[in-house]
Write a protein that binds this DNA or RNA. Sequence first.
DNA 1: CCGAATCTTGACGCGCTCTTAACGCGCCCG
DNA 2: CGGGCGCGTTAAGAGCGCGTCAAGATTCGG
Lengths: 225, 225
Amino acid sequence: MNSVLVVDDDPHIVRALAITLKGQGYTVTTATDGESALHAAAQRPVNVVILDLGLPDIDGTTVIARLREWSAVPILVLSARHGSGDKVEALDAGADDYITKPFGLDELLARLRAILRRNTESSGETAVIETSSFTADLSKRQITKSGQDVRLTPTEWNILDIMVRNPDKLITQQQLLTEVWGPAYAKEANYLRVYMAQLRRKLEVEPGTPRHFITEPGMGYRFVP
Amino acid sequence: MNSVLVVDDDPHIVRALAITLKGQGYTVTTATDGESALHAAAQRPVNVVILDLGLPDIDGTTVIARLREWSAVPILVLSARHGSGDKVEALDAGADDYITKPFGLDELLARLRAILRRNTESSGETAVIETSSFTADLSKRQITKSGQDVRLTPTEWNILDIMVRNPDKLITQQQLLTEVWGPAYAKEANYLRVYMAQLRRKLEVEPGTPRHFITEPGMGYRFVP
DNA sequence: CCGAATCTTGACGCGCTCTTAACGCGCCCG
DNA sequence: CGGGCGCGTTAAGAGCGCGTCAAGATTCGG
């Protein structure tokens, strides 16, 4: 899922971090000097770099600067030095966070989560659902059918949103009614029939014989991509 | 330029930080407890929040969570406690960075710069947006329409900025209102109608039939280049 | 302290969406 | 075989959301 590049000149630290991170579900690549770190980062895109400043060959700040020449990958810096001069230098060179050794593993992991959260949020995951007759982009709130944009009213969109987020799953009428209109309308099955017809007319190839918005008689509806 | 909200229960620290930050060119708002901090953030959008965890009324982690309910503003946490438990809690609640007191001012400023750099980098990928009727240069804050420069008021610009940074994406009215006016104005859909009309009159070829600032009835607006 | 630009606020009309009711059809069950 | 229930379809009135305009309030610069 998330890939991390760990760079430290001490093999023990590298190994300990690698084991911990793998245990958390990260994919881990390692390097013990600046050159191989830059090489590794160029070989395979990573989601975040954990970088020790005290490397044998290149100065840590230089590594950051060289990385920043072509990559915007988040960098989390480790350092044994407590002086604030190093911190300022590293952060201004383009690092995203800075921890001084010795550090708690839980803190490192928390900062890692914070960095990754920021990153995935801003890049905006594109959740796109495709069917044989239309395409739905949930983040853009946009529907396309054979190249043509389809306009949905708010209520239509609410229903579609729920259906599409639960593919192949049966959704009872009460679920839909309470989610869209509120619990007070749980008995108004009429509304559903009207709006399901609207959706089918707008999105199905043959609204008469629906292929994606399936009625399960007596129970509810089912969306099949 | 960049606005900072400083929250700390110690007025001395608040004042010292405010003076330092203003000296760096930031616009500074202050608060000495959680409630007024949330209120201040709701009144007017800020670019970053500096938050002390030890507030007299609300727990710092709760303040973070309440802020995160509606805002993605970066949060830099200060704390007197060194235990890693607090750090993990605050970071997982949605904070972006964490410094323990006492801290060096230069380190604080460096971390602030790192946070703000991240924020503007990720959003400001394409500086220039072109459409069939006008050209927008986000870094220069300049709009050109058929060779002629167009003057936009600050509010007009804020709206255009948000729309243009999210092309083809539907932006709900609440999103626009909270981003531009603050969450306190989330219900004032009137403002949007007025300003959207202004933008269309200034930027669209036919303001009556807009091609770039599209209304999605009942949902929001969409910018299509 | 004054003037201009900008923001806020209210009123009005139009179009669209939601609501609601009526009708026909097919299926299940008596 | 016939009645009832559930579902799909259609249509029409009511209400709401949107665009527009204009005037008062506020801010900002000179």
